[in-house]
Simulated assay, not measured.
Amino acid sequence: MTLLAVERIKLFSTRSPWWCTLLALALPIGLASIIAANSNSDFPLTVSLTQTGYTFGLIVIMVLAALAITTEYRFGTIKSTFQAVPNRTAPLVAKAVVVTLLAGVVGEAAAFGALGISKLIKPDVALTLSSSTEWRNVAGVGLVYACGALLALGVGMLIRQTAGAVSILLVWALLAENLVTLIPKIGVKIQAWLPFHVADHFLNGGEPTPRGRDGGPAAVVYHLSPWGSLLYFAGVSLAVLIIGIVVTNKRDA
């Protein structure tokens, strides 16, 4: 518990986590309000559509998670931590727990906030969570944010530099996974196993999302169920985190 308290204090001792948290809430909720305000009979508002901006919040949360570890290397506080706790795995796991919990809470707040503001703007539209798919569309956002934070922490442990870690996360999530479809014949097959597309599949049940439609003319055929997709994304994120912890234990601080 002491390590958890220490990591919580360290996380919120700088301004960047506060700004990232606010931005991760503002982007999905703001985009949902714009979509709701401009929806009509030709562009009907749905529960899934209110969550369109979740990707932007996810990117911000991953930046927050990467900063949580890379700023310690930048300012040298990681050395003091490892001197106080020789077992390096313990504080790293504590940091992962704190950041993951924060990411999950922010994800749920952003998702239900986006749904709530859409209801306020369009009270005549039925936006009730009446099916398991609709519950997954909304409540699942927090789970995806939590997994994304784990992945970003692992990347931060491996890279150590903020610019490098953030660049890798942004390029991979926003560009690389979509460009894979340009590979002839096998591009779409590969894309079905890429982590962020699999996360999309969990939230949307395989329905095309704006990012998926931009990926190319061919539809992606997923081989996992929505909940299997979440387990896959969580497994990839956990694997990257474990690799980061192992490498950190072997490197000089």
Rank of each mutant, 00 (worst) to 15 (best):
F196L: 13
Q51G: 06
A90F: 12
D214F: 15
R213W: 03
L115T: 05
A24V: 04
T133F: 12
K185W: 12
L27T: 12
W18P: 01
A84N: 05
A103D: 08
E108Y: 14
S167W: 09
Q191D: 10
A32C: 11
S41I: 04
T50P: 13
S118T: 12
T81Q: 07
H197D: 10
G113P: 10
A163Q: 13
T133D: 15
C20W: 03
S48A: 15
L129A: 07
L150W: 08
T70F: 05
S167P: 09
G205I: 00
N204R: 11
L23H: 07
G107V: 13
A5W: 12
L230D: 08
I34D: 13
G148I: 09
V240F: 01
I35F: 05
G140S: 07
V85I: 13
K79M: 11
A94H: 05
L49S: 05
V246H: 04
G187R: 08
G107W: 08
L153P: 11
L194D: 11
N137Y: 07
R88S: 06
F75E: 14
G53W: 08
Y73V: 07
A199P: 01
P86R: 07
T89F: 11
I78P: 11
L67F: 04
V60P: 10
A66G: 11
L58A: 10
Y222S: 00
E72K: 00
F12K: 00
G76L: 03
E177N: 09
I245N: 03
V47R: 10
P17H: 02
V60Y: 03
L11K: 01
I183Y: 05
N38A: 10
H197W: 07
V105T: 06
M1T: 15
V99Y: 06
T181F: 09
T55H: 13
C147V: 13
K250S: 14
L241A: 00
K95S: 01
V198P: 06
F202T: 02
V220I: 15
P91C: 04
M157L: 13
V236K: 04
G187I: 06
T181W: 09
K185D: 14
M62I: 01
N40R: 03
I168W: 02
A139S: 11
D124M: 06
S132E: 04
T248W: 06
L238E: 02
L11H: 10
T89A: 15
I35W: 04
H201L: 01
S225N: 03
I69P: 00
S41H: 11
A163Y: 10
G216C: 03
E134G: 06
L231F: 12
V60N: 01
H223Y: 02
M1L: 13
A65N: 09
T55Q: 15
V180C: 10
L174A: 14
G76Y: 00
I29C: 07
G206D: 00
A126I: 10
L129F: 11
P123E: 05
N87E: 12
E108W: 15
W19H: 07
I29P: 14
D214W: 12
V247L: 03
S39I: 00
L230P: 00
V220A: 01
